[in-house]
């Protein structure tokens, strides 16, 4: 599946993942980069639903929290190791995702967003208040690390970073390859015109469900690693703010792209660091960025950089610029006048 078109970005991406810890050497920066990668997994998972399938879900914050809590409860209260909880977390996330998908099968547009908002809120409330199982506001700790660090000579934060680099690479590659299959093409056909897709014989319901299930499973996987990364979890990990953050990151980063989720994650990790001394302005800045992106760069940062790179490349090759070729995103295309 490596073609001439994607080999250069792939190598750049992998090199970046490998070399970043050499640029930012302090353990603190490496921890921030690790968090960035965990977010990027969640955002890549959500992008399968939002960017490729056009299913704008706000429930993924709750699914992320669900994955974190499955790992948290099974390691802290039941005594399992981290790796044996991971498949359970993915399975629970995927099954709940399937449930959400079944409930919202016929819903489109606003109705779908609001339904996922409601269902996500319900999951959050259950996690917050089912104290016998989740310990409520007290939270759960300590969630063990995936690797026992005595066995590896690297320092702990660097090991965790490279583990997350591998996991995020696998997730991104998996999502990329999935979108190259017939399922991916069917998804985009449904996103672009569901009635037409149904008319040419695509099983709209089934394809939507598959996409939502995979997307939910990936969100739960990210949550599972988040629990281990933080080692302490409490209900706010599943709050609807996480769901909105994920959605915002994808919109700002750019949908249905490989780089978009990473750019979005970078903004959500770097911005609080820049605004560390003025935290109360963080929310305003985020909101403003969001509004400006929606108004002026509907394809997100990845879309912007694609257009910029296209212009530079064409400058050298002498071809006319055609930014429209890149904007394949119907979510933000204009509606019909009717």
């Amino acid at each position: 599946m490596i073609t001439r078109a994607n080999i250069f970005p792939t190598i750049t991406g992998v090199l970046l993942l490998v070399l970043l810890p050499f640029i930012f050497q302090s353990p603190y920066h490496i921890q921030i980069l690790t968090q960035l990668l965990i977010w990027a997994i969640l955002f890549t998972g959500l992008d399968i639903a939002v960017g490729h399938a056009g299913l704008v879900s706000v429930a993924h914050g709750a699914l992320f929290g669900l994955g974190a809590y499955v790992t948290g409860i099974l390691t802290v209260d039941v005594g399992w190791g981290f790796w044996s909880t991971l498949p359970v977390a993915i399975l629970v996330g995927a099954l709940v995702g399937l449930g959400i998908g079944l409930l919202t099968l016929r819903m489109e547009g606003h109705y779908f967003v609001i339904a996922t908002l409601g269902i996500g809120l319900l999951i959050t409330i259950v996690i917050r208040n089912w104290t016998e199982l989740t310990h409520g506001e007290l939270g759960l700790s300590p969630v063990p690390k995936p690797i026992s660090f005595e066995s590896i000579p690297l320092n702990p934060s660097l090991t965790m970073y490279y583990l997350m680099a591998i996991v995020s690479f696998v997730c991104v590659a998996g999502s990329y390859l999935l979108m190259r299959t017939s399922t991916g093409r069917r998804l985009r056909a449904i996103r672009d015109n569901s009635a037409l897709a149904a008319a040419v014989g695509i099983d709209v319901s089934r394809t939507r469900l598959v996409a939502f299930l995979i997307s939910a499973g990936m969100a739960a996987l990210a949550g599972s690693f988040q629990a281990s990364y933080l080692s302490y979890i409490e209900p706010s990990i599943a709050s609807y703010e996480v769901g909105f953050t994920a959605l915002m990151a994808i919109i700002i980063g750019g949908r249905a792209t490989v780089a978009g989720p990473f750019m979005g994650a970078a903004i959500f990790v770097v911005l609080p660091e820049i605004l560390r001394s003025a935290d109360e302005f963080r929310i305003i800045t985020l909101g403003l960025i969001l509004i400006l992106v929606v108004l002026f760069a509907p394809d997100g940062l990845a879309g912007l950089s694609k257009i910029a790179f296209g212009k530079i490349a064409n400058l050298f090759s002498g071809k006319p610029t055609n930014p429209n070729r890149n904007s394949s995103n119907v979510l933000l295309d204009r509606k019909d006048a009717s």
Partner: peptide, 30 residues
């Protein structure tokens, strides 16, 4: 915000509204 986006699809409007929510809440906080 919303008049310039009057022909935009649902997801965009939702995100714009959420961005506005953040700005207003952030302003109240400040």
């Amino acid at each position: 915000i919303f008049d310039p986006l009057r022909n935009a699809p649902p997801a965009t409007l939702f995100i714009a509204a959420f961005g506005l929510l953040l700005v207003l809440q952030g302003m109240a906080l400040v």
